[in-house]
Amino acid sequence: MKSYLVSKGDFLELIDGMIENGKEVVAPVKQENQANFKRIKSTKDILWSGPQTVISPKGFVFPQEEELIEYEVEDGIWVGSKVEAKSTVLLGIHPCDINGIALLDKVFAEKNLDENYLKKRESATIIGVECLTPCSPESFCYRKGSVLPWDGFDLFLTDVGDDFFVEVGSEAGKTLISGISRKTIQSDAKKLKKIREKRDNLFAKKQRKLKPKLEELPKLLKENYDSPIWDERGAKCFGCGSCNMVCPTCYCFDVRDCVEINLKKGSRSRFWDGCMLTDFTRIASGEIFREERGARLRHRTNRKDFYLFEKWGRTFCTGCGRCGKACLTKIVDPLDIENELYGRKGRR
């Protein structure tokens, strides 16, 4: 991977210039005592490190609500698909969320290419930033091997003082900084290595530990399919879906039609859905396949660290910790669940 050095001042000037020219730049900004991704008017608005945003930035490539088809019924029927995107820069994205998008890239391009996702994804420039301190007490990205991006970024910045150490992930990224970058030399790489060692030590000390080995999670969950933990935790679950909504890797959606009141026009849209919701598995005749909250919790956990882990060879939980924070009854955090399963197994 090519790397460069860019002075912070030059970089911010470059971005502010893009904003002035009308480019949509989205970045984390402060929102009450937390943060949210919003279109920014100036790089001064950017929140470079913690507190964490309430939800991940996945909505900019996979929107909460997205029209797929529109139709008109008047002297015949007209149906048109709607695949839209506008060029957007996603700036200040943390590794957990870059990795979330990298995983969505896999699933939305598997077999049936998801045109709506891919068009938005191709129109997005992702500029990540390394976290040098944990963003929340709930996060456990270090335990999920997610303190650095796996893939899916154009540029990745690390604060090394007056400059950003920039790793380049795409040609577009390289071109973007071509006017202000200089090649790194050995001493720069050394400096970066030192910063990362310090970061690793800090995260290892501050973040909650994952007791089982990361690569053994699929096996652990497989063995514990019938564990009483699911119903014990399920008893405290609202099935409110907060964990699904805040997750950077949840990608399920529902498709619904809406007819306009003139009955001449209508649209078909998709909406974020979640496996923790009661009606997620309801079928047309009314049956619900996964009615128990415990079974839904097991399914969600297995999707993150068993089924998709086995299928794609990577954990589908990037350790952002948002679900654990969002859950009012503190039952959903995957690390907590996995540690508990591991602990009980040990006692047997």
Binding site: Q31, N36, F37, F238, M245, G274, L277
Partner: peptide, 12 residues
């Protein structure tokens, strides 16, 4: 059929 939390979280 789902809870208000879904829409609240969607809004961030």
């Amino acid at each position: 059929e789902y809870s208000v939390c879904v829409e609240c979280k969607m809004k961030g």
